[in-house]
Design a protein around this nucleic acid. Structure first.
Lengths: 142, 142
DNA sequence: GTAACTGCAAAATATTTGCATCCTT
DNA sequence: AAGGATGCAAATATTTTGCAGTTAC
């Protein structure tokens, strides 16, 4: 299992044009193992002092640039990131799914099975991207 | 005009249980005059050194607490605030409208006339609040 | 071997807290 | 007069930048 994940993360990194290093594997594994979004602070907490805080910043930025993860808008000044699905190309994020934030456990999930509903805007607006964040109580916390 | 707005802001503050001070009137007037959302940094820029940065933080927090403004989730760690409509009670925000962020001018608007579409979540999720942020090009920037 | 990644130090920025003073009610 | 708002100083936290050493390819 751990080995399978190791292989998966290496493949993912390569597929996105990122060189494979220990830090990147570890951080990517966090995303792969934990089905949910992670903020910079979460990653720092999980990995302890294994890597420098700066490295985590730069790693997350590279991941976003190469389309491996996407950021989720929040109301609390702590951007959360989640793995992209295959449709996300480098620098071109298609977040067609909605995000769910649980008020109890504070986890953020990508609900890939729920598509973003379409919106009709007033005349004159060009729509480029739609973000939807739903908050409430998740399955595990009911 | 300026007088009318003065009166309006005083009324609004009182109606929300906030004591009326110069700083609060000035900050609220910014929201009333500029039809769009403001981040902390915007306010600081507009008001110069008139008020301490700390005062702006605390003022915005009071406004949110009392239901005068609401925060809009962003992807860039700079929370933006916008005036609430009447439905927003103290500590109880009903943001039934969607938000629009223009990629050109970077302004954020509340599109009050566009209701948030309803979403159907998988079994087990309780929906509490729905946030929708659309990015694209606004009317003025077309 | 070269380009890219990393850690460390430090700068720049953002946010919070405590306290004394002043203002609103 | 009393409670709350403000300014200032300072503590904390967050993010960015530069550079030298190391590593992936």
């Amino acid at each position: 299992m751990a080995t399978a994940r190791q292989k998966e993360s290496v493949e993912l990194l390569k597929a996105h044009g990122l060189s494979v290093t220990g830090g990147r594997k570890d951080i990517l594994n966090l995303f792969l193992s934990r089905k949910g979004a992670l903020a910079h602070a979460d990653i720092e907490k999980k990995l302890g002092t294994l890597y420098d805080r700066v490295t985590i910043y730069r790693t997350l930025q590279s991941f976003v640039d190469k389309g491996l993860i996407h950021s989720i808008p929040t109301k609390d000044n702590s951007i959360r990131y989640a793995l992209c699905k295959d449709e996300c190309a480098s620098g071109h994020h298609h977040d067609h799914h909605i995000h769910f934030v649980c008020k109890r456990c504070n986890h953020t999930y990508c609900l890939d099975e729920v598509a973003t509903p379409s919106v009709k805007l007033p005349k004159g607006y060009t729509v480029n991207q739609v973000e939807m964040v739903v908050s409430g109580v998740c399955q595990s916390c009911q």
